[in-house]
Amino acid sequence: MPGAENIPADLLYSDTHEWLRIEGEEAVIGITGFAQDALGDITYVELPAVGDAFSIGQPFGSVESVKAASDLVAPANGTVVAVNDSLENSPELLNVSPYDEGWIARIALPGAPGGLMDAAAYEEFCAGEK
């Protein structure tokens, strides 16, 4: 499973270990390989609802592993336009495919997101967290 290595080059990253992929005026968000590795086997995902609006740094859902529960923290301001329903019955997708099949939500961006790291900066950030 992806850990702190193999950080995709084309994404942006928050210091709370969420990733964001900009697609026009929308973005897809999820949690990083580092995050899923730290959490361990994920057993439950609380998804936001379509239409939920949140600001950067706000909790927009939560994930639970066998051992712990933690908030999902918004990496950008946005309004939810779609969620990955398959996580409800297959939360392990966050472990096995955090950057692809384990995407969490698609949000409409009110503007260009700020304060995020590129892959190189995030890799360095993860090294400091270990």
Partner: peptide, 9 residues
């Protein structure tokens, strides 16, 4: 040791 491969496995 808390886990090797993963708790569920």
């Amino acid at each position: 040791p808390i886990q090797y491969e993963g708790i569920l496995a």
